[in-house]
Design a protein around this nucleic acid. Structure first.
Lengths: 189, 189
DNA sequence: TATATTGCGCAACAAATGTTACCTATAAAA
DNA sequence: TTTTATAGGTAACATTTGTTGCGCAATATA
């Protein structure tokens, strides 16, 4: 008996994501979102309790988009598995600057890197395979490598650095080999 | 004949900096600043055209504070000159998270790292001395080293990483030596 | 001591944003 | 075709923040 909904939740979140990817979370206001959708603010508050709920959805959607970058990188096999993760992180930073800032350049005291060791176990395993070092060393190896990747990504996301994919590719390889050389030294001597 | 000013510009900027260092630039509102000073908003607008002007002063003051970190690091000679710069950058990120975000984790399209080569010439000179590589290579060396330093600093500023100064010290040395080894290879062979 | 100048506190106004009440229009069921 | 539940548009209200007008009070000078 009631009229049909003008938009689905998904359509609203999609429009919201569009605003955020262009101008950051602060651009996501009720009126701006309504304008983006071509309606009043009512359809939004009909489907979401409040704007905070929309923000959370946009945040989750951003994570999903980043995951798709990761998966795509692995799938296409453009790079070896380990480098693929770093390249995907940096590509996301380059192509989705605002979303990268949202996910990776905010307070992260609730998700400290050293408390999330399980999350990166696949990457640590790759390092152990490729270098033959111990797990603890491989973890430290990964941390150092990821600091470098994160350094590039944050510089790219803030438009401070503009390296080509080729140069990024090359320096990641060099850094990996440099670390491998350093971490393997104890074993080889 | 008129009454004395209740506060100087410096006192107001100092109070403003206090708000920003605690909760970021968004915490710097006219009313919050007035409360911090213990007065109405009038003294602020008597000495500053508007809040934007106060923000600019806070920004400049933040830069001065960072410079003092740099100078202090060099002066105390706790570390070799090159490492001193990196350690100061990271210490600033650790001790002044909000100010670090303000200075180094925002849009920087107007001050790209590769257009500011002159600014880091002293650091490049140190690298040339310590490694004997060419200037262009030393520039690239510095870029890679600084990416690593920036990576640590941003992770620290967002509370994602909590390394001790000792560990930071050690990994900076290792990274420097690793890069030196890599960049010098062509010369030695 | 009287006066003129003007900084200051209070309160108001404007703009941006979140949120909601009210009424109209719609669409499925009877 | 009529009825009824309810989505949507309009406009209002609340809150936050920047900014300013008004009248009082402080202070150096005559």
């Amino acid at each position: 008996m009631p009229p049909k909904f003008k938009f689905t939740k998904e359509e609203i979140v999609s429009a919201a994501l569009n605003l955020v990817r262009k101008n950051g979370m602060s651009a996501l206001t009720a009126r701006a979102l309504a304008e983006e959708l071509g309606c009043s603010v009512k359809p939004i508050f009909g489907l979401f309790k409040n704007m905070e709920e929309v923000q959370k959805e946009v945040f989750s959607e951003s994570k999903r988009l980043y995951d798709s970058y990761l998966q795509n990188g692995i799938k296409t096999e453009e790079y070896p598995a380990y480098k693929s993760a770093g390249m995907a992180y940096i590509r996301f930073a380059k192509e989705e600057k605002e979303l990268f800032k949202l996910l990776f350049m905010r307070d992260r005291s609730e998700e400290k890197i050293e408390e999330n060791r399980e999350e990166v176990r696949p990457l640590i395993n790759i390092i152990m395979q490729k270098t033959g070092i111990s797990e603890d060393e491989a973890y430290m190896f990964h941390l150092e490598m990821w600091i470098y990747v994160h350094g590039i990504a944050t510089m790219v996301a803030t438009s401070y650095l503009e390296w080509s994919n080729e140069l990024i590719d090359k320096t990641l390889t060099d850094m990996f080999l440099g670390l491998k050389n350093r971490y393997s030294k104890g074993e080889k001597d």
